[in-house]
Design a protein around this nucleic acid. Structure first.
Length: 301
DNA sequence: AATGCGTGGTA
DNA sequence: TTACCAAGCAT
């Protein structure tokens, strides 16, 4: 990249920061994990719950969770099955197990405080590239490229000029995100939250509203006439009939049960015995279900 | 790198 | 109704 190109890219980046951050100051949602009293643990819990799950469904579970386990050590002292039970119907219940494991690691290795170091966060179960950056940025005000699905979509449109980002995060996206990151730490943290909120509220996957976008005038995708996504549809995977559905039904029975349940209660949720057994074995292997010596099953103790 | 992993709302 | 989408992670 030439000096001229570099300079131009940096100038373009800087022209995005103020409009997006100013928009955020006015339009940011008042979410509980953004309150000053949420703390790093509140931020971390919210990030686990928000992985692939909409805000509206997270809100009530988050409130109950934080009331019951206000510090990592409180959760760490519980049986992992209680975390799975409290997770309710948020989906992907392995997240509950990983959050419990992360709380234990924090209690044992970090004196009960959510670490602020990005590498230490990354080493905790359930925390990957996005969540480590998000906790470090939102909870501790650090300067990190926070690349979630919202930010990736905003950058794809505004900077790259395409409707959707690639399926998996690419090196080019990370490079772009770093290039767009404000130099100042405090501003960078604000930018991370603001660009994410813009993607969540305005620059949405479907029915984006460019009339409310603070950077519509600089958006490469819009200026190009909003060309449609090129390439194959990126989804697939119908849910009905999959092992996931069977696992969900099995776990639902165990969440509701206050005492260990007999095999017959689990057999009732699915007619096909081979798939049913495979799903149950998978849950046991994942540590989400514990088989007892008398042939009954329960959430892990 | 591709796949598996829940659940419910929306168009 | 089907298909897509929702602050990803682990293997």
């Amino acid at each position: 990249m030439t000096d001229t190109t570099t300079h131009t890219a940096r100038a373009d980046a800087a022209s995005l920061h103020s409009p997006v951050i100013d928009w955020f100051d006015e339009h940011a949602r008042d979410l509980p994990w953004r309150r000053p009293d949420a703390g790093a643990w509140g931020v971390m819990v919210s990030e686990f719950m928000l992985q692939q799950t909409p805000v509206s469904r997270v809100l009530p579970v988050y409130e109950q969770w934080m009331a019951r386990w206000p510090r990592p050590a409180d959760l760490a002292a519980e049986a992992p099955g209680e975390a799975v039970r409290a997770w309710g119907r948020l989906g992907y219940p392995r997240r509950a197990l990983r959050l419990h494991g992360a709380a234990q690691a924090i209690a044992e290795r970090h004196g009960g405080d959510v670490p602020s170091d990005h590498g230490q966060l990354l080493s905790l179960p359930g925390i990957g590239e996005y969540t480590a950056a998000a906790v470090a940025s939102f909870a501790y005000g650090q300067r990190h490229a926070v690349l979630d699905t919202n930010v990736r979509r905003v950058f794809a449109r505004a900077a790259t000029g395409v409707q959707y980002p690639p399926t998996a995060t690419t090196a080019a996206e990370r490079k772009l995100a770093r290039a767009l990151l404000p130099d100042d730490e405090r501003t960078a943290a604000r930018w991370a939250a603001a660009s994410m909120e813009l993607g969540a509220l305005v620059c949405t996957a479907r029915n984006e509203d460019c009339s409310r976008c603070p950077i519509a005038g600089q958006c490469a995708w819009r200026l190009a006439g909003k060309p449609a996504h090129e390439g194959a549809a990126r989804r697939g995977q119908t849910y009905a009939g999959t092992d996931r559905q069977v696992r969900g039904r099995l776990l639902a029975v165990l969440r509701e049960a206050l005492t260990p349940v007999p095999q017959s209660a689990l057999d009732a949720v699915w007619h096909e015995p081979v798939q049913r057994a495979r799903a149950l074995d998978g849950l046991v292997a994942d540590g989400l279900v514990e088989p007892l010596d008398d042939g009954t099953y329960r959430l892990p103790g």
